[in-house]
Design a protein around this nucleic acid. Structure first.
Length: 609
RNA sequence: GGCCUCGUAGCUCAGCUGGACAGAGCAACCGCCUCCUAAGCGGUAGGUCACAGGUUCGAAUCCUGUCGGGGCCGCCA
């Protein structure tokens, strides 16, 4: 798939994933599950009106879902079981009563009560087919919702130290964050993508010294790279640029003189590298927040003041680390944050015993700043190695927002580079850790994005360079793209045969032609899409989109192949115009959903392969 | 030793946040192209959901403990 990154980028930028507004009243109409949920809610109210059950029962635990087992109907709900306790009536009795009401609903074909009190519904086929029409009418907006309206989200991700280009592991966090951002935008959230630049710690001093060594090298001096320096080739050019910019002025001067300037210079260059890596993946940030700005503006002190006002700062000594035998442990008095008051296991140091800030201090200030900027939701995407950090950050956000901010930390597990089932451990020392740029060049941004999203964020991911570009059904990226390409292929052929295949036209065809059980089943799959979006967004889990698309693609391939065996299921049949139009509508609806899903993941759908 | 996280078919993983007899894809076995892309599809077989308790009408899912893998572990960022 040699699609250029640039073309992909262009396509991404033009796609309207901004806040939706077209479907305010269309939301419930296009999501059959939400509709039926509403119908059950009305049925419950009706029973409450007849005093069968009390008013105002909490229905948050009520499920309206597709049962795994087809014999349990098309939609099932546990409503009666939820009601049983507060109503003090057996669930089956309540289920019967609800069934009675619901059987009067024109959308419902059959209702039955099963097991301990499940209510199983079978809808009239038209209800499922309506999803097909919605997909054709709404296009990319089919599935969109407004759950996130009036919710401002700060999404912090990547935040890699500006000491070198990104590697594959960063790439996973980057792709995850970006896809999550897109998903949240699709569901009406106002998202700010933010990158926290650690440009104030000792890491960047090491960077500065490493760049300086390259500068000396470029000036023709013998240089000795100690163990404490970054050796990457990417610094050679920085040394050269330093030499060009400063001439020999930095030679023979004490470190204290050149370090700040060289550091700023090097950081700028590293950020440029990082931004270009992100661009390869089609990712843009709304804001780069520099750690250094916090100390300059006195915002660390402000944040500390805010904590102090809440009585959460004190001077004291930490207990020794539990269990771990540490010979040189001795208690020291320092400034501590009482994070235990907000769920942490131990209080955390803000200042070292010499009075300087710990790394934690700017983080407190940074999150103080995020809260002050008025976000309703804060999301941090971290590498799994930051796991030990989440509790104290939770405590900070809880304390500074007085428990109001919704805070979610997503830990991204490792990426294992795999070759023919052998694991190569990625490590800087072994020199085999893969740079993001290499990976994108090897497999393309779209494939890389898809693969990175195939696993839950908290499960390790195996990445096999060879497998992901294979053109077989073993490769899920290909599999999904192929399904889309096939729909395009058949639509193209239909067009050539004289069918009017534009969406507006297909949206008007008589879907009643779709009578076969497999076709209704396919429509049911299309109907699930809005619900998948809703759940994925609610749980901040973009991988659900990937799994759904894989399922949808499988259904499509199956439907297609079936047409080879059973001629009446063949999509294109010039002797049957109305049937063909209906089947084209079904195929086109699946293409719309695949393209939309891929777009949420930041991937362009392919029209041919 | 403490905290976090994971443990589901031979392998890689889902499991709609507590629902009804546990689901896919690989791999294995058996089938399907004079016909829209076989770059594909259908079928068979395969699991005490690590283990033991507990909560519940109901647990892979929640709680406790044990075992096993990974990560982090005063003033490093």
């Amino acid at each position: 798939m040699p699609e250029s990154a640039l073309a992909a980028e262009r396509k991404r930028v033009t796609f309207p994933l901004e806040v939706g507004n077209r479907i305010n009243d269309g939301h419930s109409r296009m999501n059959i599950f939400a509709e039926i949920r509403g119908a059950i809610g009305s049925a419950i109210e009706q029973l409450a009106g007849q005093s069968v059950i009390p008013d105002g029962i909490d229905l948050s635990r009520m499920n309206v879902e597709r049962p795994r087992d087809a014999t349990h109907g098309e939609i099932s709900t546990n409503a009666a079981m939820i009601l049983a306790k507060p109503a003090r009536r057996p669930p089956r009795v309540l289920a019967e009563a609800l069934a009675d009401v619901l059987s009067g609903d024109e959308r419902v074909a059959r209702v039955s009560v099963a097991g301990p009190g499940f209510l199983n519904l079978v809808l009239r086929p038209e209800e499922w087919l309506r999803a097909v029409r919605s997909a054709l009418q709404l296009g990319m907006d089919y599935g969109r919702n407004t759950d996130g309206r009036n919710r401002r989200v700060n999404l912090e991700f990547v935040s890699a130290n500006p000491t070198g280009p990104l590697h594959l592991g960063h790439g996973r966090g980057a792709v995850f964050g970006d896809a999550l951002g897109r998903l949240l935008e699709y569901t009406g959230h106002d998202v700010t993508r933010e990158y926290y630049v650690n440009d104030a710690g000792s890491q960047v001093d090491i960077l500065a010294r490493s760049a300086y060594l390259r500068y000396l090298e470029d000036a023709g001096l013998d240089t000795d790279f100690g163990p404490e320096s970054y050796r990457g080739d990417y610094l050679i050019e920085v040394g050269k640029s330093l030499h060009e910019a400063y001439g020999d002025r930095l030679l023979n001067t004490p470190e204290s003189r050149w370090l700040p300037e060289v550091r700023d210079f090097a950081i700028k260059r590293m950020l440029r590298l990082i931004k270009s890596d992100l661009k390869l993946l089609g990712i843009r940030m709304d804001r780069y927040f520099h750690e250094s700005s916090l100390a300059q503006d006195g915002r660390i002190d402000q944040a500390l003041k805010a904590l102090r006002e809440r009585g959460l700062v004190y001077r004291g000594k930490l207990p020794p680390p539990k269990g771990r035998r540490s010979v040189d442990w001795e208690p020291r008095r320092q400034t501590l944050f009482r994070s235990t008051a907000h769920g942490d296991d131990v209080d955390r140091p803000i200042r070292k015993s010499d009075g300087s800030w710990t790394y934690f201090a700017p983080d407190i200030a940074y999150h103080h700043d995020k809260i002050a900027r008025g976000y309703d939701v804060l999301i941090n995407v971290f590498g799994a190695d930051h796991g030990g950090y989440v509790q104290r950050l939770r405590a900070v956000v809880s304390a500074l927002s007085d428990g109001k901010a919704h805070f979610d930390i997503k830990l991204i597990q490792l990426v294992n580079v795999v070759q023919r089932d052998e694991r190569l451990k990625m490590s800087k020392r072994a020199g085999n850790f893969v740079q993001l740029q290499e990976a994108v060049e090897a497999v393309g941004a779209d494939v890389l994005r898809f693969v990175m999203l195939m696993r839950r964020n908290d499960a390790p991911l195996d990445f096999d360079f060879e497998e992901v570009v294979e053109k077989t059904k073993d490769n899920p990226v290909f599999y999904v793209q192929y399904a889309h390409a096939r729909t395009c292929s058949v639509l193209g052929r239909a067009e050539a045969a004289g069918f009017r295949t534009c969406d507006a036209n297909l949206a008007e065809v008589d879907l009643g032609e779709l009578r076969h059980a497999s076709q209704i089943a396919f429509a049911r799959r299309i109907s699930e899409w809005p619900r998948v979006v809703e759940v994925a967004a609610r749980h901040h889990e973009p991988h659900r989109i990937v799994f759904y698309l894989t399922d949808l693609a499988r259904d499509f391939h199956a439907m297609w192949a079936r047409g080879n065996r059973e001629p009446e299921l063949r999509i294109l049949d010039e002797s049957d115009v109305p049937g063909t139009l209906a089947r084209l509508a079904l195929a086109r609806a699946s293409a719309v959903v695949i393209a939309t899903g891929l777009e949420i993941l930041g991937i362009a759908a392919l029209e041919e392969m």
